[in-house]
């Protein structure tokens, strides 16, 4: 049975200083297990859309429903429990002046069960768990996260975000600050984990190849409005050139 997890109902977002709305007339539904790729030129409203979902922005009009609850009426703690955002900046995802283990203590969800088993068991578990994301991280639990490389930081941020998967994972160009090889590796890892753990996710990107390879649906924005929604057979038949034409 298909369950609608996230519903945008006539969303508008205005900035007082700007003439044109950042987002307008957004009506869209995300089903559980969808991996939605949000495409659009700079300033099309992609990041603002994610910031509306995680509560950093409030809509000027309309509602965003998580199942049947208005996201902006949830407490900050409840919202944080259901929604996790990763951005391109490590500063937004991690506590850089704290150790890797302290970041785990602060950012992983539902740590109580693991905590019951004791500190040593927790460390062994974490080392084993991090192996799949980046083997270099396993021996760096007591290192300050700010001293890790950019790729290690983003791998760690992803690992902590999906340890106990949130209802919705928001990825705001989370690979765009990395070199192409590391970015490609992290993107493949992200898509793999999302599919494996059946996480509902929205990814903003300029990389149309990622949209074709990994997304289950594509949402294209232009000047704050939905330009196109591509899914199912139509998405499968798309090639790179026609995607560029339809979305930019």
């Amino acid at each position: 049975m298909i369950t609608t997890l996230l519903t945008f109902k006539d969303i508008h977002l205005n900035y007082p200083a700007l003439e044109r709305p950042i987002l307008q007339k957004i009506n869209y539904s995300v089903q559980a297990g969808d991996f939605v790729i949000v495409l659009g030129a700079n300033g099309s409203g992609k990041s603002s859309l994610l910031k509306l979902i995680d509560g950093r922005y409030q809509p000027s009009q309309g509602q965003i429903l998580l199942e049947h609850k208005n996201i902006h009426r949830l407490s900050a703690k409840n919202r944080a429990h259901h929604i996790h955002t990763l951005t391109q900046s490590a500063q937004d995802n991690l506590f850089l002046n704290l150790t890797l283990f302290e970041n785990y203590q602060l950012l992983a969800r539902n740590p109580k069960e693991r905590k019951k088993k004791g500190l040593e068991a927790e460390i062994i578990f974490l080392k084993e768990y991090l192996k799949d994301f980046n083997p270099n991280l396993c021996d760096k639990l007591s290192m300050l996260v700010g001293r890790l490389s950019g790729g290690e930081q983003q791998a760690l941020a992803l690992a902590l975000a999906v340890l106990d998967p949130p209802a919705i994972l928001l990825l705001d160009e989370h690979t765009s600050a990395l070199d192409p090889k590391t970015a490609a590796h992290l993107m493949a890892l992200t898509a793999n984990i999302i599919a494996q753990k059946k996480i509902t996710a929205l990814l903003t990107t300029h990389n149309t190849q990622h949209a074709l390879n990994y997304g289950t649906r594509i949402l294209a924005l232009r000047e704050g409005e939905i330009l196109d929604c591509i899914e199912g057979k139509a998405k499968k038949e798309l090639d790179h050139a026609s995607l560029l034409e339809r979305c930019y």
């Binding site: 900050a76 703690k77 429990h81 506590f95 850089l96 002046n97 704290l98 602060l106 950012l107």
Partner: peptide
């Protein structure tokens, strides 16, 4: 939490 507040209060606030 106090250390995390000193390091990145915005991220801590996002944790609720």
């Amino acid at each position: 939490y106090l250390r995390a507040f000193g390091d990145n209060p915005k991220l801590l606030a996002r944790q609720g």
